[in-house]
Amino acid sequence: MDKEKNQYHNEFAALVKITMRDGDATESEKGFLSHLSTKLRMSTSEYEGIMANYLSYPLETIPTNKMKLQNLYTLTQLVCEDDSITGAEQKSWLERMGKGMGFTHQNVQYIADKSIKMMQEGADLDAFVDGITNINQ
């Protein structure tokens, strides 16, 4: 497997691990993961392999706050574009991802709300990063 593909598998597996670890993933969240695997051009066997073995993949710490915000932007974009996860489930899933990415538990609800609102308003990456960085101002 090439290095880029392996990185996508690791990142996807991390999303699966965060989604599934509490045992309360909704069918919509599972559907979203399935849809996301298609967007990543994963084969059915790759997807099924990750879903069956997600606990064996590492959760890597995101090294910088900027990278964390860039990842949150991408995830928010994907969630807002997808019809398989909507409304309160979008927010709940983003909160779960935010906690897994290292955002504080005290702020993650506000961050998820703000992320969805800014994406719905068409924020680009720079505006998104600025908005989340200055969420308390």
Rank of each mutant, 00 (worst) to 15 (best):
K3E: 15
E4L: 11
K5F: 12
K5E: 15
N6M: 15
Q7A: 14
H9V: 11
E11P: 03
E11K: 15
F12Q: 07
L15E: 12
V16I: 06
V16E: 00
K17P: 00
K17D: 03
K17L: 05
T19I: 13
T19Y: 08
D24W: 04
A25Q: 08
T26L: 12
E27C: 04
S28M: 12
F32Q: 02
H35F: 15
T38V: 12
S43N: 08
S43P: 01
S45R: 11
Y47P: 00
M51S: 05
A52W: 01
N53V: 07
N53M: 05
N53H: 09
L55E: 13
L55D: 09
S56Q: 04
L59Y: 10
L59T: 10
E60F: 11
E60I: 11
E60V: 11
P63F: 03
T64G: 10
M67A: 14
M67R: 09
K68R: 14
L69H: 04
Q70G: 05
L72N: 00
T74I: 14
T74S: 07
T74P: 00
L75S: 10
Q77C: 07
L78Q: 08
D82N: 12
D83I: 02
D83M: 08
G87K: 07
Q90K: 04
K91G: 12
S92V: 07
W93L: 14
W93F: 14
L94Q: 06
E95D: 02
E95N: 00
R96H: 07
M97V: 09
M101W: 01
F103T: 02
F103D: 02
H105V: 12
Q106E: 13
Q106T: 10
N107Q: 13
Q109T: 05
Q109M: 10
Y110P: 00
A112W: 01
D113A: 07
K114S: 14
E121G: 03
G122D: 08
L125W: 04
D126Q: 06
D126T: 04
A127S: 10
D130N: 05
N134I: 03
Q137L: 11
